[in-house]
Computed example of a mutant assay.
Amino acid sequence: MSLDSNRFHIKFWGVRGSIPCPGANTVRYGGNTSCVEMKVGLQRLIFDGGTGIRILGESLLSKLPVNGHIFFTHSHWDHIQGFPFFVPAFIPGNHFKIYGIPAPNGATVQQRLHDQMLHPNFPVPLQIMQAQLQFYDLEIGESIQLEDVEIETARLNHPGEAIGYRINWRGLSAAYLTDTEHFPDRLDENVLKLARNADVVIIDATYTDEEYHNPKSSKVGWGHSTWQEAVKIAQAANVKQLVLFHHDPSHDDNFLDRIGEKASLAFPHTILAREGMAIELIPSSPEKAASSVANL
């Protein structure tokens, strides 16, 4: 399936963290876990395979054959649990290159996707997938070049290790920075590097400061950040559009509305990720770009 060579299109298929949370109180923002698709020039890039990737897969069935690149930040369950339900991976003629960092115990991204589909946890093995799947283990800090699309990487602060991505194309840039926890005394240099002057930054904002520092149920050390810290990153890195992402499953639509209001006061160019939301980056000159946001 051919892509428009002159567009940088971002779509959100899953915006939650930790566990899916469908229900009457999460309809507006969505309940599926992390999955973001970027159509950049001639490349289809998919970031994480949470439950949102199932819906993405259904949308691709009318566009066969499909080629794409799937980038995993890490292999915690909420980021890989949708991959066994990604229908295009079962269809011959499709081709996906799959990237991730090895786990601290040395397990490759292929091994971890394979292991979650073994009995007794899943009825069919990875080998039943009939698309051409190629697996690549990344070194943190390396860059990937896909024709005219450059993808930078850096280490994120998360238990068991995670990797962040920055996508550069024709003077436009977007960063995908989840899951990561801020440091108590400084801004994370790796996060700042990937976010620098970016047109869009999609960033972990799981908690509020009050939740993170709650003396009765502290979230310190859990590997996630707050919307207040995300704003600090956006201000320091000169970010054009901040997208708060990886919403806590306990945050219903009304709670997220309130976060959005407060965050927009602190950094006007802030939105909260919603399932179905799309961002189109539009080059207006070699030096500048505009963006449009739509809920589809």
Rank of each mutant, 00 (worst) to 15 (best):
A289E: 02
H79G: 10
W13Q: 01
R274S: 09
R274N: 06
T206A: 12
K39M: 14
H95V: 05
H69T: 04
D257I: 02
F183V: 00
Q228N: 07
K39C: 14
I167E: 05
T180N: 11
F96L: 03
H224L: 03
F135K: 08
Q43K: 15
L172P: 09
Y136V: 13
S18D: 10
G171A: 13
S291L: 12
G160H: 07
W222E: 12
Q111Y: 05
L56M: 03
H246S: 09
A198R: 10
A290E: 14
V66I: 15
N157T: 11
A263Y: 04
E280S: 05
P249F: 09
A237G: 03
H251F: 08
W227H: 12
G50P: 01
N105P: 15
R7G: 12
Q110C: 04
V124G: 09
E142M: 14
D115E: 13
H247N: 04
P84V: 11
G57P: 00
I167L: 11
L242V: 04
M277W: 00
F8I: 03
L296D: 01
G106Y: 12
H76D: 09
F135G: 07
L45S: 02
G57Q: 00
S250H: 08
V191G: 02
N254R: 14
L156C: 12
E211K: 12
T153K: 12
G141F: 04
T178L: 11
R186I: 05
P268T: 11
W227Q: 06
T206W: 09
G82F: 11
P286D: 02
I259D: 01
P92Q: 09
T206L: 14
P84F: 14
K97D: 06
N214R: 10
D137L: 02
D204E: 05
T33I: 08
L113H: 01
A154S: 14
I259P: 00
K193A: 04
Q81G: 06
Y212C: 13
S173W: 13
A237H: 06
T51Q: 05
L272C: 10
K63Y: 09
